[in-house]
Amino acid sequence: MITYTSDLSTVTAEHLTGFFVGWPNAPRPETLLRLLQGSYRVVLALEGERVVGFANAVSDGVLSAYVPLLEVLPEYQGRGVGSQIVRRLARDLSHLYMVDVLCDEDVVPFYERLGLRRATGVMLRNYERQSGE
């Protein structure tokens, strides 16, 4: 049974393995834990103590937030886990004017099904720093 929480108090780096499939320079579990701990809001999907999915938001806490990551372990994809994470995170951020997600074109329909609207954006990426190290 999948449960959802924002509580990171019992999560360790060992609970955060298997994410970032296909990334050429993925963050290590220890880096991911630091990233989640430093976030404005986090939603975790758990099966027992195992983290099977997560999303995080960074925010000014007043007007805007950005959702940089949504990750679901491959064996849990297609089961509604990512949708539930996004819905819960959107609810947690509903007091803000704007919540932005910058994503690859192939996942835009996923977010549109959840009520987000397509927008134009720009980005700057330093792929040498993709791991967060």
Score class of each variant (00 low, 15 high):
68 P>L: 03
74 P>F: 05
8 L>I: 04
13 A>F: 09
62 V>F: 08
94 S>C: 10
92 D>I: 00
72 V>E: 01
2 I>V: 15
96 L>K: 02
27 P>N: 06
86 V>Q: 13
47 E>A: 13
1 M>R: 02
8 L>M: 08
38 G>H: 13
27 P>S: 05
67 V>T: 07
32 L>Y: 02
3 T>H: 06
132 G>T: 03
82 G>P: 01
41 R>H: 14
101 V>E: 11
113 R>T: 09
35 L>Q: 12
1 M>S: 14
131 S>P: 02
33 L>I: 04
57 A>K: 10
80 G>I: 06
43 V>Q: 14
43 V>S: 06
58 V>W: 05
66 Y>F: 15
104 D>S: 05
120 T>K: 11
129 R>T: 11
6 S>K: 09
80 G>N: 02
51 V>I: 08
18 G>E: 03
47 E>P: 03
66 Y>L: 13
32 L>N: 03
64 S>R: 14
102 L>G: 14
30 E>N: 12
85 I>A: 11
108 V>R: 03
15 H>K: 06
97 Y>K: 15
98 M>E: 13
62 V>D: 02
107 V>D: 04
125 R>S: 15
67 V>Y: 05
5 T>K: 12
28 R>H: 02
51 V>G: 10
65 A>W: 07
57 A>P: 03
72 V>I: 01
110 F>A: 06
97 Y>Q: 10
16 L>F: 09
34 R>S: 15
3 T>A: 13
53 G>N: 07
62 V>Q: 04
80 G>W: 09
64 S>L: 08
121 G>L: 09
34 R>Q: 15
105 E>Y: 02
55 A>C: 15
63 L>S: 13
39 S>I: 08
116 L>H: 07
126 N>E: 13
33 L>Y: 03
65 A>V: 10
58 V>F: 14
106 D>A: 06
123 M>L: 14
65 A>F: 06
99 V>C: 07
113 R>I: 00
55 A>Q: 10
9 S>G: 03
14 E>T: 12
109 P>R: 11
